[in-house]
Nucleic acid binder design. Structure first.
Lengths: 153, 153
DNA sequence: TATTGTTATACTCTATAACTATA
DNA sequence: TATAGTTATAGAGTATAACAATA
């Protein structure tokens, strides 16, 4: 006798997942926004800050402090684009690449813990159903819609 | 070749669901926080503000402005508890009860739109899997974990 | 003295618009 | 003049602590 639909359950479980993930990566001194940026720079290196802002659906001004923090920690490097000296080309440093491995391990542990109640087959089913929904709802793969509202120094 | 796990998909689809729901109820001039409060008052009328705050996992001070707004619109009523005049007993007004019907319709439309990609059987499967996860993760039925971070005048 | 609800303060986060440097 | 990045300002939202009324 719960009476709550799948939409509410999705929002509830999804917020819980995001919260638990934030707690896990906090142990690496990272915020969700920082991880999102790191992932994007790792996947497509050399992009400008504005290009990245557009892909994340956030505003370019937000990236300044975000990149500043990761650059000071030696995780990201700002390379000037020789062709157009107005643009930066963002890339991961050696330490940044090493950190990505730790983030991957954290993500896998998070994944296992979150779906601990499911069997292997149920996990595959859930993944397939979520993918169907995400596809039909036109969600960009790898981009968290709530990115705008996630803090990150 | 997406490579994103169910945990990320859950967070992504969940945030999308919450966002779309917020847009729908905005047409009723309501915020997610206000709907959460209305639902709780409708389910268990007569509770004090502190009791409600505890159930929502938020702080009592936040409820003041929240209740103020709904009271001024004639949706919620503050009744003084005769036994202990420090406490209020929050209840829905006639208009408040009517509004709950409209919220229910909005929620159902939201539910259908969000799961439009799924068959009837797939919807039942998704609901069962999400319930399993929510139960194992000790999530309180009907309480959105991200309630703390939802605005509401 | 303890508790309910309220108010006040400071703090964080975001968004908008100006500014610089390059083109 | 147009664009990338930066900075500055104001606004919204939250949390903490103090306050008044009642017990």
């Amino acid at each position: 006798m719960h009476g709550f639909g799948s939409a509410f359950l999705l929002a509830q479980v999804g917020a819980h997942a995001a919260q638990r993930f934030a707690e896990r990566i906090a142990e690496l001194d990272l915020t969700p926004a920082q991880v999102g940026l790191l992932r994007l720079v790792a996947t497509r290196p050399g992009q400008s800050q504005q290009a990245i802002a557009a892909q994340l659906g956030t505003q370019p001004t937000r990236l300044v402090a975000l990149v500043d923090g990761l650059e000071k920690r030696g995780l990201i490097e700002r390379h000037r684009n020789p062709g157009d000296r107005r643009l930066y080309a963002l890339e991961l440093s050696e330490d940044g690449r090493a950190l990505m491995s730790r983030i991957a391990l954290t993500s896998m542990a998070h994944e296992r813990a979150l779906t601990a109640a499911l069997t292997e087959g149920e996990r595959a089913t859930l993944h397939a159903l979520l993918t169907k929904i995400a596809d039909e709802q036109d969600l960009t793969p790898g981009v968290h819609p709530g990115y705008t509202r996630l803090k990150g120094s």
